[in-house]
Design a protein around this nucleic acid. Structure first.
Lengths: 111, 111
DNA sequence: TGGTTATTTGGTAAAATTACCAAATATTAG
DNA sequence: CTAATATTTGGTAATTTTACCAAATAACCA
């Protein structure tokens, strides 16, 4: 049955389901960053970045700490990096040799 | 910078960002299932399940095979199981002191 | 004190997602 | 062939997400 734990888990995936937020998470695997760093690199509005960060924070993926005028964000769920590598491997494997690889991995690729 | 690979990766997370689809993926880790099995357990419309399955399939997470009148689905990205366990651990570890409010996670809201 | 910098919050319109219904398709049974 | 079963597709309304702007807040500096 569809328990609440699926809903909770889906919040984590929802939080990660945006290119900008994946970029943020990737960057945080190398260490903490302040908000302005994301703004500079993502080239979107400060408020947009702030809202992306709050989505990640509400899902528990990152935490924040204010130091002076700046707010620094830090990764909390470290296993996401491993899954990201898995996805990238999966996607590139499929990208290089799409049909064949899918057939060697399993049966019945339609479409 | 925000490359296309982030967008591609986000499609995988988007595909997983729904309780019903997480349920489907979980069930498929135990082996292939036909569509009607999901319909029975999720208690939603056949068409709804079918669309959830097509989202997962388009993201490359699952594959399908028609046998007779039935269509059987099978998990393709197996590492998702490991990440799910990581999330569940993370959530339950945090659950003791800091409960996540399921309703508080919309964009733009803070704790 | 007032001004500047860093960030968050509120509002809003456009875009995406969701779930249902009805209809279409495909396979098997009679 | 026609009917029945299993699934997908198209349409649609309700909900959610997104990105921007403007305004609010908070910390620091002159």
């Amino acid at each position: 049955m569809l328990t609440d734990s699926y809903k909770e888990r889906s919040l984590v995936f929802k939080a990660l389901a945006h290119p900008s937020r994946l970029f943020i998470v990737d960057k945080l695997t190398a260490g903490e960053c302040c908000v302005c760093e994301f703004v500079n690199e993502l080239k979107v509005d400060f408020s947009t970045v702030s809202k992306h960060l709050s989505v990640l924070k509400n899902a528990g993926l990152i935490s924040d700490e204010k130091r002076g005028q700046q707010v620094f964000y830090r990764l909390q769920m470290h296993c996401v990096g491993e899954f990201n590598r898995c996805i990238d491997n999966f996607l590139s494997r499929r990208g290089n040799d799409q049909k064949v690889c899918l057939k060697c991995c399993a049966v019945g690729e339609t479409e």
